[in-house]
Amino acid sequence: MKAKLVRSISQARFPLAKPTWPASLPRPAPKRRVGLDYDTAWARRYPARLVRAAVTDFISSPLTQLVAPSTIVGASSLERLEGPLIFAANHNSHFDTAVLLSAIPAKFRHRLIVAAASDYFFDTTVKSTVVSLVLGAIPIERSKVSRRSAHAALELLEDDWSVLIYPEGGRSADGWMQEFKGGAAYLSVRTGAPVIPIWLEGTGRLLPKAPTAKGSAPGGSGSESSRTATLRRRPVSVTFGQPVRPSEGDDARKMGVRIEDAVALLGREVATDYYRARRDPDRALTYGPEASTWRRAWAKPPAISVAERHPRDSWPD
């Protein structure tokens, strides 16, 4: 029976099987609707949203808490806000989005899209489908504010979707913050949506960016130059800042500076304390020293251990 079925399927002819292509006609390159062309509309329909909500709330958030126990600061200030919001965070690791999706309040999380690099996350149909479904991602061009990407995000903001964006345009290689690109500011100025600055600490050590071959020392060999990203259990912190709203007369450039300052301030706050961060706007605390690669890495504060972050209650000696 089974063999008969397999035989009849393998012997099926057009139209049950695919048509053959006439030899005299050039075969066009298959249309790959990936990258910026990938249509993510399906992932914002209710069935996909339901799947995403279930995956986020019941699978990915508990797993994230297991791997990256997080301390969340300032989330309560979001509760009084109405959407849509633009969440702008520093970016150290692929794990950032998972951490943020577990930290952003549910009222925004379930109507949230994540701006993801079209060249990295949307380069194949499978990846595009997975990130659209699980993260609610939309493809954006990270090198510049492109009209297409911006238009897509604008439409979604106008349709009451909040947006999570990493204005650095990619993960930091060494954990220090990079200069921001203009996407978040542009969207905020165009729509009036407030930007919520976020500082993520610790995710870079949880799942660091793998070094590229280009970054290896010449002549390097052995485990160091072939190191790949591996997940290590580390505590993380997510600090939400006060909303940054576009003011009258703000253009995208001015707004961009305000957003970057707000995120940098949170970075300093995490590195020092609330008061010192404001008293002493030391650029090096967030952007790192202007020095060679190893000195920048050296200057990073040591990792906090899980034990430090969550000291176990113990009986007094």
């Binding site: 139209p15 048509p19 292509w21 006439p22 005299s24 006609l25």
Partner: peptide, 22 residues
């Protein structure tokens, strides 16, 4: 104008209130 060869799939043909592949 397509010249039919071995690789050309059957062609859609109308037959009144129906159609077939030929």
């Amino acid at each position: 104008v397509l010249e039919v060869d071995k690789s050309t799939p059957p062609t859609l043909l109308w037959k009144g209130e129906g159609f077939g592949l030929q």
